[in-house]
């Protein structure tokens, strides 16, 4: 297990390889094949967005990256997915460790029914990042600040997290993910339940977080993908149709299907 921990950044920098890679990934739900032969690289400190019509498998792929599919009955993943060149599906790898390094933010804000403070402090306590109260206080403040929520909630840290507005809840969930200081953050349509103003704030936030984290975001909005990401992958019916620099994909798609989707012929 320590092999993962030992795969430290300096070595990686030397090799200059992507943060995460997927090679020939197939995903099955029972008998049905949800993803077919996916090859994708996720570069460090970039935002990679996954787009495509609903049911195309983009969320499924996202959940493979921190093995959240493990909790779904009958879901099977084949092929290789690596984090810092280490296969995350190899036997003996620990999902708890993996998820501490690859965090996730969900479509619907899902704060725990606890106070705002406890929501943020949950992860650090879990992983023994901080035991002392003062350390925890710092982490909570930093995380909330990074998520752009500190000013709004600093006076009511003990209020329940479920009492915040939708956009605030989602930023709380992002702060909760940040507090563990993961290397990669996965976001599954983080703005789909939010109004346009809240969406704009989250998008801004994503752009800032790119400094410190590698981000993979699933979105159904092509504008959002264009705004926040450097690299975009287009999924269709379980296939990864096309992946390239965001600008190029939107201005000059290579594939017929991508063209169709971004011009709104289907979706």
């Amino acid at each position: 297990m320590d092999a993962v921990a030992e795969a430290e950044a300096p070595q990686r920098a030397l090799r200059n390889s992507p943060k995460m890679t997927a090679r020939q990934v197939d995903v099955y739900y029972g008998e049905t094949k949800a993803l077919k032969n996916i090859d994708l690289d996720i570069e460090e400190n970039q935002v990679t967005s996954l787009i495509g019509p609903s049911g195309c498998g983009k969320s499924t792929f996202l959940r493979c990256l921190n093995r959240m599919n493990d909790v779904i009955d009958g879901c099977r993943v084949e092929g290789d997915i690596t984090l810092d060149d280490v296969d995350i599906y190899r036997s003996g790898l620990d999902v708890v460790q993996l998820r501490a390094r690859v965090g996730m933010v969900f479509q619907k804000p899902n704060p725990f029914p606890k106070s705002i403070y406890d929501n943020i402090a949950y992860g650090p306590r879990l992983h023994g990042i901080a035991e002392a109260k003062s350390d925890l206080d710092d982490i909570v403040e930093i995380s909330l600040t990074k998520a752009g929520l500190w000013k709004e909630v600093k006076d009511r840290l003990q209020a329940p997290g479920t009492g915040l507005s939708g956009g605030q809840q989602q930023r709380l969930c992002i702060a909760r993910a940040i507090a563990v200081n993961p290397e990669v953050i996965l976001m599954d349509e983080p703005c789909s339940a939010l109004d346009p103003i809240a969406t704009a704030r989250i998008e801004e936030l994503i752009d800032e977080l790119r400094q410190n984290f590698t981000i993979v975001i699933v979105t159904h909005s092509m504008q959002q993908a264009a705004r926040v990401s450097q690299k975009t992958a287009f999924f269709h019916l379980g296939d990864l149709v096309e992946v390239s620099e965001t600008e190029q994909l939107f201005t000059n798609p290579r594939d017929q299907r991508t063209q169709g989707y971004i011009t709104g012929r289907f979706g």
Partner: peptide, 25 residues
Amino acid sequence: MTDSTAPAAALRRADLSEERLKRRY
């Protein structure tokens, strides 16, 4: 987002030491 200037260094990585994991498991 003017308030997002706190140093990222203050955030520490998870303690994934063998011993702690053993305890949790």
